[in-house]
């Protein structure tokens, strides 16, 4: 198993994908942190017209530091899709299964390596976000590390990126064409699902469902407040329940993908 995991890491770090992604993650982390820090501390946002703005220093820091996480998890979602999609597209899956014919073991190695890779990009994202965000917050007179729950948010954001990578892994298997898998999963995760969450929150029956959507569970996990259409903060799960829900999505997607992969003919 450790040999299979080592092979997965080598696969990942021997194409140009990883450092292109690394630059994107650092830059988006820093850019969104600065943007959020400036907006949330501006007079307009904090004035009478302002809505759904973090009021405490701790909530403000969480919102700022995780501002780039959505871009980050969309990128690791894409990495998850490509981890398996590229293998089928370039037929390297044949070599992979020749070296390790126990396919469940290969999938296990992919899951573990993606969790580590997710954490790796999480560190990069936070390096950009905390570096730039703490600077702006301090300059504006806010305490960037007001209480210890901020550290929990930072730690969980490493897990968030890994779990979204696993969702991508499943999507990359269940949608056989890699390009289609990338487009569909990004479009759903970036636009369709968040909008659906907001729309559901408007209805009586949907209010109870929307906290369980992946993006809402992610926000809950990181305790980053977000506003609905009416500008008021929406209901969300507690951080641990959000983590469990997102982990369940990751487990179901990776599990379905493994089930499919083990049975498939490699022709």
């Amino acid at each position: 198993m450790s040999a299979a995991i080592r092979a997965e890491f080598r696969k990942f770090f021997t194409t140009r994908l990883w450092w292109g992604m690394a630059i994107a993650v650092i830059l988006s982390g820093a850019a969104f942190a600065v943007l959020f820090a400036l907006v949330f501390t501006s007079d307009i946002a904090r004035g009478p017209q302002g809505a759904a703005v973090p009021t405490t220093d701790a909530a403000l820091a969480k919102a700022v530091f995780t501002g780039g996480i959505q871009i980050g998890y969309l990128l690791t979602l894409a990495i998850g899709v490509m981890t398996i999609g590229a293998e089928y597209r370039h037929q390297t899956i044949t070599a992979t299964f020749l070296a390790v014919p126990r396919r469940g073991r290969v999938m296990g190695a992919k899951v573990i390596s993606l969790l580590v890779i997710g954490a790796f990009y999480g560190v990069l994202s936070l390096a950009g976000a905390v570096g730039a965000g703490a600077l702006v917050l301090t300059a504006k007179g806010h305490h960037p590390f007001a209480d210890s729950s901020i550290w929990r948010t930072l730690a969980l954001s490493l897990l968030v990126l890994g779990l979204w990578a696993l969702i991508g892994l499943g999507a990359g298997i269940l949608i056989p064409n890699q390009v289609a898998a990338l487009l569909i999963s990004i479009a759903v995760a970036w636009i369709v699902e968040p909008v659906l969450g907001l729309v559901l929150a408007l209805t009586d029956w949907g209010q109870n469902i929307s906290p369980y959507l992946p993006s809402r569970a992610t926000a809950a996990m990181l305790e980053s407040t977000s506003g609905g259409f009416d500008g008021q903060p929406v209901d969300q799960l507690s951080w641990w329940a959000g983590a469990l829900v997102l982990a369940a999505y990751a487990a179901v997607m990776a599990g379905l993908g493994t089930w499919r992969t083990v049975r498939r003919d490699i022709a």
Partner: peptide, 16 residues
Amino acid sequence: HPGRTGRNHLRVQAAA
């Protein structure tokens, strides 16, 4: 994989 060198392809297999 077109973006990976032949040598690295073998190194992946060697690791596995």
